[in-house]
Amino acid sequence: MRIPATVPDTGTVPVTLEPVRQKILMDNDTGIDDSLGLLYLLASPEAEIVGIASTAGNVPAPQVAANNLALLDLVRAPELEVAQGALTPLAIPLRTTEDTHGPRGVGYAELPPTTRPLSDRSAAQLWVDLAREHPGEIVGLCTGPLTNLALALRMEPRLPQLLRRLVIMGGAFNHPGNTTPTNEWNVHVDPEAAKEVFDAFSTAPADRRPVVCALDITETIEMKPKHLTLLAERAGSTPVEHVSENDPPQARSAASNPLVRYLTDAIRFYFDFHKLYDQGYLAHMHDPFAAAVALDPSLAVTKPATVDVELAGTLTRAATVADWAGMWGREPNADIVIGTDPELFFERLVERVGEYARTVFAEGDSSR
């Protein structure tokens, strides 16, 4: 995706400019949709991933880190720093969700073993060090519980001023929860951390408030089997498989492209999970959407609000509450996404990840 420069017609060959690259620190709990969010970044020429922080959530933190390293290996990515986060939330035992993401967090897929090393520094230290080294340059992208970021804020309270922007996948406002009737998974895992983060960003300038991609919007980002077909076609993978709700659980992709094979096996598990809970044979792509917003905020229509997290409610603990009207008398500390164009998002996802799969694996190369 090279952007032609506008130059006078002098008979010379037009110059092409590389897109301006955006430094991204991704904090995830990989996770099927987290993995697709990471792939979206890897496939985007305007993204420069400066680090990956692995947080406990969908699966334990060591498994998350292993998934991140193995996924980088699968796609032959350059060396990227992957740091492991805290093993438990700030104040409560860890709850994981292998029923949603599979025993290793990647559905039916199997990632290859990897010898890539884990960072010597913790995920929280990674946040702090990178923000200090690149003040005003880094976009933080959180697609899991906010434990690592909360710990980083305790170490460096100036993070809201040091980061260029923060994008969070989490919360539910005018929408039912997906874990309890009132709360969303990432906040549910570590509500104390979520509250610390939102409280800390009450001091952020208006142009650096967190952009919050909550269930209100992310559950409209519905991936369906047709999108997997389009990805395979864009990648030039054969055979072009058509995933169906009638496929048995033991079915595995025979795609020639290793990345398409991984995505098919991982996402089919996600389809099966959503169907089990009467949501249709589809998968909500929460995290890739947040990744897309991190790179292009114009994908999201936002509305400022003051966000807090309920910690004491018997029925509502971990609920995210938004004061849209200023009733609390506190300045907004978040910009909540209230609208988007899912079709445009999926066009970008298919184009970028499909072309990335084609480029990484030359035709006929299924050696990994």
Rank of each mutant, 00 (worst) to 15 (best):
G329T: 04
F346N: 05
D33W: 14
S35I: 02
I221V: 11
D247L: 10
R261D: 02
S367Q: 08
A232F: 09
V309L: 11
Q22R: 09
I3R: 13
M327S: 09
L126S: 01
A193Q: 01
S44N: 00
D129W: 11
G354N: 11
S54Q: 09
A123F: 09
N58F: 07
F198E: 02
D190R: 08
H286M: 06
S253P: 04
I92M: 13
M327R: 14
H227R: 10
H101N: 13
A251E: 05
T88D: 10
I3T: 12
A362Q: 12
W185E: 04
S366K: 08
D207V: 08
V321D: 02
A124M: 09
F346D: 03
Y281F: 15
A61Y: 11
F269D: 02
D9H: 15
E245V: 02
P89Y: 07
G170N: 06
Y281E: 00
S253E: 07
A290Y: 00
L130D: 05
D199H: 05
V301R: 11
E222N: 09
N246F: 15
P93S: 14
R261T: 04
A334P: 00
V187R: 10
P160A: 14
R208F: 06
N67Q: 08
P19I: 10
T203A: 15
A294R: 00
P157F: 13
K195R: 15
L94G: 04
E331R: 10
L349K: 00
L90P: 05
L151R: 13
A86I: 03
C142M: 09
L315H: 06
V20M: 02
W127R: 03
V337E: 01
